[in-house]
Design a protein around this nucleic acid. Sequence first.
DNA 1: TCCGCAAGGAAAACTGTTTTCAGTTTTCGA
DNA 2: TCGAAAACTGAAAACAGTTTTCCTTGCGGA
Lengths: 166, 166
Amino acid sequence: MTEEQEVFLKHIQKKGLKRTTQRDLILDIFLRTEEHLSSEDLYRLVKREDRSIGQTTVYRTLKLLTEAGLAREVRFGDGITHYEHNYKHQHHDHMICSKCGRIIEFFSAELEAIQDAMAAKHRFQVTQHLLRIIGVCAECRRAMKEADKEKAAPRGSARQTTARAR
Amino acid sequence: MTEEQEVFLKHIQKKGLKRTTQRDLILDIFLRTEEHLSSEDLYRLVKREDRSIGQTTVYRTLKLLTEAGLAREVRFGDGITHYEHNYKHQHHDHMICSKCGRIIEFFSAELEAIQDAMAAKHRFQVTQHLLRIIGVCAECRRAMKEADKEKAAPRGSARQTTARAR
DNA sequence: TCCGCAAGGAAAACTGTTTTCAGTTTTCGA
DNA sequence: TCGAAAACTGAAAACAGTTTTCCTTGCGGA
């Protein structure tokens, strides 16, 4: 049993809840997916291994994982709640590419320090913070430059439409 | 006519739309309210001056204001889209008190600089960024301390319940 | 004055999420 | 080992914020 599973089990027990196969499976799939999953995403993955599990259970289990400190809710502002690993994972921030949806994680100690300083200045006690940088990633910038060149001296007819991030 | 109204008018015209009393009223009320309004908030204010205006129009007009660059959408992650003034207003970040919902605006040039540096490092072209610090404001911290004292040596019976931010 | 495009409001549709409901499973003490 | 109590589950309904649809209204130019 992994450390994470123990943490979950401990949390479950502390709340007087029960360990079930559904919860085990959802946790397992969550753990082996190192991404920013939405509840929907996870639901799809889970369903692939057990068609009988319902959305509701996934929602509920994600809540439990969050409570247990294994997952962390991240809302990027598109109305969808994403979840990322939280156990023994260092805090980090996100850059989100508005073209392809790619998420780049980064961390800066200086940034953290300044944030804390700003909070202190306002006598504000920080419990959490979120930094989100939205823009265009290196990859997409290159693609765009290509497209521009193409436009200036067109060769083929099909111009790539930029995929909208979801 | 204020500068903002001109900006709006210009935008309206560029899109081949029309100036209407409803849009004027909504813009007017938005401009005189220096806060982070949700669509619902604005709708309530507008309705006070003209009962006949519908939610839909408020939503649509806020979209227009955003397009025109007068307003800016801010999502704090509670599922509600807030709008703040954007025209000739310097960019700033937010601290949000989870007890009373108060919003403190702040700005730090260093912070901006580091963010830009981080982006540059990843060859990421920034179009927007958002920093949200969640915690407890000075006011509420004081209130909590009071409550704790009260608890240690109770005098009255009524203990204040902390209002949940909305 | 007539035409046509855009506007506006009500209501329906939609989306992600939460709650309700009713049947099922698990736990645990006797 | 039984049986009651508590928790679990999935489906469907409920919800809240937002967007779309539909149809009437009305302005503005020919």
